[in-house]
Amino acid sequence: MEKAAAPQSFRFYDLVMAAFVTILLLSNLIGAAKPAAVTLPFVGDWSFGAGVLFFPVSYIVGDVLTEVYGYARTRRVIWTGFAALLFMAFMAWVVVALPPADGWPGQEAYEFVFGNSWRIVLASIVAFWAGEFANSFVMAKMKVWTAGKHLWTRTIGSTVVGQGLDSLIFYPLAFWGLAGWPVELIWQVVLSQWAIKTAWEALLTPVTYLVVNRLKRAEGVDVFDTDTDFSPFAKAGS
Rank of each mutant, 00 (worst) to 15 (best):
M1V: 06
E2K: 10
A4N: 10
A5Y: 02
A6W: 04
P7C: 11
Q8L: 09
S9C: 02
R11C: 05
A18N: 06
A19P: 00
A19F: 08
F20T: 06
F20Y: 15
T22W: 06
T22C: 13
T22M: 12
I23H: 03
L24Y: 06
L26R: 09
A33T: 04
A36M: 10
A37H: 04
L40P: 03
F42Q: 09
V43N: 00
G44N: 09
W46C: 01
A50T: 09
S58R: 09
I60E: 13
L65T: 09
A72P: 00
A72M: 06
A72E: 15
R75T: 12
R76L: 04
V77F: 00
W79T: 11
G81E: 05
G81H: 05
A84E: 01
L86T: 12
F87I: 15
F87Y: 02
A89N: 13
F90G: 10
M91C: 08
W93M: 14
V94P: 00
V94A: 10
V94W: 10
V94K: 05
V95Y: 02
A97S: 14
A101I: 03
W104K: 14
P105D: 05
Q107V: 04
Q107F: 11
Q107T: 07
E108S: 14
Y110I: 00
Y110Q: 00
E111I: 12
E111C: 04
F112V: 02
F112K: 15
V113M: 13
F114D: 07
N116H: 11
S117Q: 11
W118H: 07
W118A: 13
I120W: 02
L122C: 09
A123T: 12
V126H: 01
F128Y: 15
F128P: 10
W129V: 14
W129S: 07
W129Q: 09
A130L: 12
G131N: 06
E132A: 13
N135M: 13
S136E: 07
F137W: 15
M142N: 03
V144L: 03
T146Y: 09
A147P: 01
G148N: 06
H150A: 12
H150T: 08
H150C: 08
T153S: 13
T153D: 04
T153N: 01
T155G: 11
I156Y: 03
S158Q: 12
T159L: 06
V160P: 03
G164Q: 07
L165M: 13
S167N: 12
I169K: 08
Y171R: 03
P172N: 09
L173C: 08
A174N: 05
A174T: 07
W176E: 05
G177R: 04
A179K: 11
A179F: 07
G180V: 11
W181L: 08
W181P: 02
V183L: 07
S192V: 08
Q193V: 06
A195G: 03
A195Q: 05
W200E: 13
E201Y: 00
L203V: 13
L204M: 14
L204R: 07
L204G: 03
T208L: 07
Y209S: 01
N213S: 14
N213G: 05
R214K: 14
L215Q: 12
L215W: 12
K216S: 08
R217D: 14
E219P: 05
V221T: 14
V221L: 15
V221W: 12
D222H: 07
D222W: 01
D227I: 00
D227E: 15
D229P: 01
D229H: 02
D229E: 11
F230A: 02
F230R: 01
F233H: 11
A236R: 06
G237M: 09
